[in-house]
Computed example of a mutant assay.
Amino acid sequence: MEVKNSVAIVTGGNRGIGEAFVRELFAAGAAKVYVGARNTESAIHLEREFPDRAVAIALDVTDEDSVARAAEKCNDTSIVINNAGAFNNELLIGAVSTAAARNEMDVNYFGPLMMCRAFAPLLAHNGGGAIMNVLSVGAILPIPNMGGYSPSKFAAHALTTILRAELSEQGTQVGCLIVGSVDTRMAEHVAGKKEKPEDIAKAGIAAVRKNIPEMDTDIFAITMRAAMHRDPGTLEKRMAASIHATDISTGR
């Protein structure tokens, strides 16, 4: 997939990894990037920085009508970056209700599914194109203190593989990024070294260019995958132990 002169849409493109994708797509020569955000005012700074190239689009990935309207407006899209995500920092049992887990599944699984359903016909019409789903280490390793986030990313991981098969005949490549700890608002509660959002975006664009089905974007993702394959039993025990540092009544 050639990124130069392409037209992309980035969900959650107004900040964090999404904003980094917008900037790195332009650095790679993209002609236009639709910046998906629930509130387009939050993406005005990108429109001002990249006039006539960055286009803010009202987009709520949990709302099928909103996704359909975005697809209608962005019908020249050739690359879809499913970046929008939710992490509510609640436990599965300790949470007051299942609302947080349902929201994480809505945003992290059903959101990309609806985006792919809406944009796949456009990609086929525009020559095939590419879909890149921004996932997490939580998509390959069940992380107990991440509540509904990890299951939702597991679902999105399976979605990626299934859609790759479904869309192969129309020439659409489908991949995902396994991302570790990144210096964004979502991970502000996490201690330790964090990757720069722009480095994750650069890895994602390289994965699109080279049609890499699944890419570990950083050292944390690589290390955790290796630990999972080397000694899964010990890693599971370590993960279970980590949950005892969390208040079971609140999930925090």
Score class of each variant (00 low, 15 high):
T98E: 11
V107E: 10
G180Y: 07
N82V: 14
V208H: 02
R209C: 05
N83T: 11
L159Q: 03
T77A: 08
A187V: 09
A99W: 00
G148I: 01
G94C: 04
I93R: 08
K210P: 01
I143E: 01
N89I: 06
G85P: 11
G138Q: 10
V137N: 05
E214T: 14
G128Q: 08
M114Q: 15
T77N: 04
F110V: 12
N83P: 00
G147C: 02
M215L: 15
G171E: 12
V134D: 06
A86R: 14
A221D: 08
V80L: 10
Q170Y: 05
I143T: 04
F87N: 13
S152A: 14
G148F: 00
S136F: 04
L122K: 09
D216H: 09
P142K: 04
I140C: 02
N145V: 04
A86K: 12
A101R: 02
G111K: 09
A191V: 07
S78M: 10
M115I: 05
F110P: 03
R209V: 14
I79G: 03
L91E: 10
D216F: 06
N82I: 13
N83I: 11
I162C: 11
I131R: 08
H125K: 15
D216P: 01
I200T: 06
I140H: 03
T161W: 05
A206W: 01
D106F: 00
I212A: 02
H125V: 15
A156H: 05
F119Q: 04
L113N: 14
V80R: 01
P213V: 14
K202I: 06
N108R: 02
V208N: 03
P142N: 09
A187E: 13
